[in-house]
Nucleic acid binder design. Structure first.
Length: 601
RNA sequence: GCGUCUGUAGCUCAGUGGAUAGAGUGUUCGACUCCGACUCGAAAGGCCGUGGGUUCGAAUCCCGCCAGACGCACCA
């Protein structure tokens, strides 16, 4: 699927351009054409006339961006062509250079040791890029490839009765970013917070509460009291394993509808939700559905029947399993020997329900990498049930968060609460604002946006599969490649535009923007749609995070080297357009990773 | 033991089979009468874990080994 989408990109552009060119037999609409600029496409079109035996799409795939600006803007490595044409790559590059006819938009082509390097006409390129961005505004980088298609994203999904700690942040922010990215690509997204509100851990909590807790203590201590009961349970259970059986028995009672068990469960759930919602509010994250595990309690029986009917269920050591030995996997357990259900039972049920309800094109699960096998197993069960949409289920794993080298474990009480981190980050930002911009309006809101931004950005900074070691110093560091740096850069661009106090006009002379900083900035701006697309394809928000740092750096270099609000009106107009385009792109990118883009900080 | 993932500058990390492997941070040295210095520039810093293989070409693909993380039936 990934390969398929990748292959489609150039085709999509090609077809779209063709469509615009031929629409109603009229000349193409300039504005529409500019929204589709694709410099590789331009080069591929030129080359395809001279290279026989390769389609435009194949040539497109060969093209790359040179590592160094001195080598041009787009390059064709001729080594692979060498075999087809039985000529040396050097020769091919030179022959092509001498034969191709360059349009105005390409200044020159140079053959250099087996590469054919194309140099764009800078002025035309900058004009096209800036016009595109300013015309499209907050749609710059968006597509409509997902039009009419649904994508379910299952993320955050904290366990009730456990505190929301730094480990939960990753699922929340990665999922939230994927939601925004797919939405930007035209998909209709359904964000589901699959709350862990069912299962044996409630049995444990009930046992602990009845033995060592009290109504008063829970009402006063809220989730912290629940957590300490949970921790105490595991401590005691080490000495007295019979407690585990008691806990399982209480869960069986829950599944059988025992009123005492259920009312305690509801109470614990309410307490937890209050806490979670407070954190989501600080983060500024919402969900379309909070259908947690308990939602599927009355829907599992038919699925178990279905597994039985399809001959997949097998008894083993008293439990009901689906044997996956044939696929080199341990069995997928469906029912425990006491007849109660498990995680996999609910996941399978939920997937079937979601397919029926949302008719998704993809259903994405954002969870820790430690659950990889679990997903592999039950995805296989769905396939064995004969559902051809099994390949639409996608597990998006992320690395483990550790605490000073040790794994965080709620059971042992070793956690850093997310709310504490967010509040500290906000506090720190607030202090900086107080010092640097004491006259700022709504300081509290800006402090929240930037403090949260710092934490979220740092979580989305590396490839999601990497393990992270939590450190207060790192998460509260606002220097270098951080959220505040990018947000600050955006605010700075806004500030210049405010000072200019004039409409940014599209009527500017792009040939004035001739410095290397200006050209480099335009090139980076150009890359944004491609980066967003890759981030979607690879389900990897860090691609956008990285890009934003590059863009902010390029802008700051430009800003440092050149004055924008100069007397020369033509130069001023052109540079303001560049600033406006940067502002738009930074804001769009920040939005896609779930950060605010305040205009003043 | 088996399986999955990770290993790149002192540290944290980027890096589509292609040209001289890049940022940030830390260290050293610089730049503010100037649009917001939470900024910018320069220097130093690399057997890309290791040994083979494939290829015109490998940090990138394949195999072995080493190190670490995470899994491997009644938790989620």
């Amino acid at each position: 699927m990934v390969f398929y989408l990748f292959f489609l990109t150039p085709l999509f552009n090609f077809v779209t351009i063709w469509y615009y060119k031929h629409k109603n037999g009229k000349k193409i609409n300039k504005k529409e054409y500019f929204t589709m600029i694709d410099i590789k496409q331009k080069v591929a079109d030129i080359l395809s006339e001279k290279i026989e035996g390769l389609s435009t799409e194949e040539i497109y795939e060969l093209l790359e961006y040179p590592p160094n600006p001195d080598m041009g803007d787009v390059a064709l490595p001729c080594f692979k062509l060498s075999r087809i044409f039985r000529k040396s790559p050097v020769q091919i590059a030179e022959d092509l250079m001498n034969n191709i006819q360059l349009p105005d938009s390409i200044e020159k082509a140079e053959a250099v040791s087996g590469y054919l390097n194309f140099f764009l006409n800078k002025s035309i390129f900058i004009r096209e890029v800036l016009e595109t961005i300013i015309n499209k505004g907050d749609k710059y980088g968006s597509r409509d490839i997902g039009k009419g298609k649904n994508i379910v994203i299952d993320y955050s999904s904290p366990n009730i009765a456990k505190p929301f700690h730094i480990g939960h942040l990753r699922s929340t922010v990665i999922g939230n970013s994927l939601y925004k990215i797919f939405e930007f690509m035209g998909y209709n997204c359904i964000g589901i917070n699959y709350l862990g509100d069912w299962g044996t851990q409630f049995g444990k909590l009930i046992v602990a509460y009845k033995k060592w807790g009290s109504k008063e203590a829970v009402e006063n201590g809220q989730i912290k009291e629940l957590m300490s009961l949970y921790v105490k349970f595991h401590k005691e259970a080490e000495e007295n394993p019979a407690l585990e059986d008691e806990a399982r028995a209480w869960f069986v009672k829950m599944e059988k509808g025992d009123e005492e068990a259920l009312s305690l469960w509801r109470w614990f759930k309410d307490i937890s939700l209050k806490e979670f919602n407070r954190v989501y509010e600080i983060l500024g994250i919402t969900f379309d559905s909070y259908a947690g595990e308990s939602f599927y309690e009355d829907k599992m029986q038919p699925v178990i029947e279905e597994l039985k009917e399809k001959g997949l269920l097998k008894e083993s050591e008293g439990a009901q399993i689906v044997d996956l030995e044939e696929y080199d996997m341990p069995p997928c357990m469906i029912l425990k020997k006491d007849g109660s259900t498990l995680y996999a039972t609910r996941d399978i049920t939920a997937a079937i329900y979601r397919k029926k309800t949302y008719d998704f094109e993809k259903c994405i699960y954002v969870t820790g990498v430690s659950q990889s096998l679990h997903f592999k197993q039950w995805f296989k069960v769905i396939e064995l049930m004969g559902y051809d949409w099994a390949d639409q289920l996608i597990h998006v794993p992320f690395g483990t968060v550790s605490l000073g080298g040790e794994k965080m474990a709620t059971r042992e009480g070793k956690v850093v609460l997310l709310e504490d981190i967010l509040n500290k980050a906000i506090e720190k930002t607030r202090a900086i604002i107080e010092e640097k911009s004491p006259h700022l309006e709504n300081k509290d809101e800006i402090a929240r946006q930037m403090g949260v931004g710092a934490v979220v950005f740092s979580d989305l900074y590396s490839n999601r599969i990497k393990d992270v070691s939590f450190s207060w110093d790192e998460i509260l560091n606002f220097d270098g490649e951080t959220g505040p740096y990018v947000q600050y850069t955006h605010a700075r661009a806004c500030s210049v535009l405010r000072k200019a106090d004039e409409e940014v006009s599209l009527d500017f002379d792009s040939s004035i923007l001739s410095s290397k900083e200006e050209y480099q900035l335009a090139k980076t701006l150009y890359l944004f749609p491609e980066k967003v697309y890759t981030a979607m394809e690879e389900l990897e928000p860090s691609i956008i995070t990285r890009y934003l740092v590059d863009l902010a750096q390029d802008f700051n270099r430009f800003y440092h080297e050149h004055s924008i609000l100069v007397e020369d009106q033509a130069l001023r107009n052109a540079r303001l357009a560049l600033v406006q385009a940067t502002k738009i792109t930074l804001a769009n990118g920040l939005r896609l990773i779930g950060l605010s883009a305040p205009e003043q900080v």
